[in-house]
């Protein structure tokens, strides 16, 4: 990964002002219901997240990135339309893989926020013509392409966010050592790289053939969390 590293670091940085800090990636609900109590639990939670939601999102981010690459300012009008159509199909396919309405709302809100931030941070002609609230991985993949990144970069970035969000949130949710939380991510790096490579390998697949790994309990908890009275995080 020699080219575009600076762009990926910018996009995947949790401090990028796109509203990600208000979310725990399902961890708050898992802690509240006693499913995550210590660092070992956190490791299992993150592994589950990376191999289900994370892997699906990585595949869609990679595919969105591939759809946009080459469709720059000098693209033919027909090409642009093709790119936009493919992004819209990817978005619908990802909706179909997100059974929880609450999580669909969260993903579209985060996608909209990321797109809004990138319009200011890295303007690109297609941003105005894209659907304004795509699923977050679709926005991320498109944003990655606009920064000159490749599908595997987009997959890596989305996977990183899927585990770093909960790892930052954990210290606010239970008695946890922040070093332990980040050690958990460090231990997962082999798995994350593997998932990212796999996702990138499918970037040109037909959207309906992209993976659909499910986590029914997370879906259920997300529904409950949305209406919970005293939550610290929006999801």
């Amino acid at each position: 990964m020699t080219h575009g590293t600076a762009g990926l670091l910018l996009l995947a940085d949790g401090r990028l002002p796109a509203g990600g800090y208000a979310h725990s990636g399902g961890l708050e609900a898992a802690v509240r219901t006693g499913r995550v109590r210590d660092t070992a639990d956190l490791g299992r939670f993150l592994t589950g997240r990376a191999t289900t939601t994370g892997a699906t999102n990585a595949a869609f981010a990679a595919a969105a990135c591939a759809a946009l690459r080459g469709a720059g300012a000098d693209a033919e009008p027909g090409e642009e339309q093709q790119t936009l159509t493919r992004l819209a199909v990817l978005d619908t396919e990802l909706d179909a893989r997100t059974p929880s309405p609450a999580l669909r709302r969260v993903s579209h809100a985060l996608g909209r926020q990321l797109l809004r931030a990138l319009k200011a941070v890295n303007p690109h002609p297609l941003q105005q013509r894209m659907q304004q609230g795509p699923n977050h991985p679709v926005a991320f993949g498109a944003g990655a392409a606009m920064l000159g990144l490749t599908p595997v970069d987009a997959a890596r970035g989305v996977l990183h966010e899927s585990v770093s969000g909960p790892s930052s949130a954990v210290v606010k949710l239970m008695s946890a050592d922040p070093f332990d939380a980040y050690r958990t991510i460090a231990e997962l790096r082999g798995l994350l790289d593997e998932i990212a490579e796999d996702a990138a390998g499918r970037a040109l697949d037909h959207p309906e053939d992209l993976p659909s790994y499910g986590a029914p309990l997370s879906d259920h908890l997300a529904e409950d969390h949305e209406t919970h009275e005293t939550r610290l995080f929006a999801s």
Binding site: R15, P17, A18, G19, Y21, A22, R112, Q113, R116, A117
Partner: peptide
């Protein structure tokens, strides 16, 4: 939300 990352409020 009002200082470092205003995106949610701005939208």
């Amino acid at each position: 939300a009002i200082r470092d990352d205003v995106t949610m409020n701005l939208l």
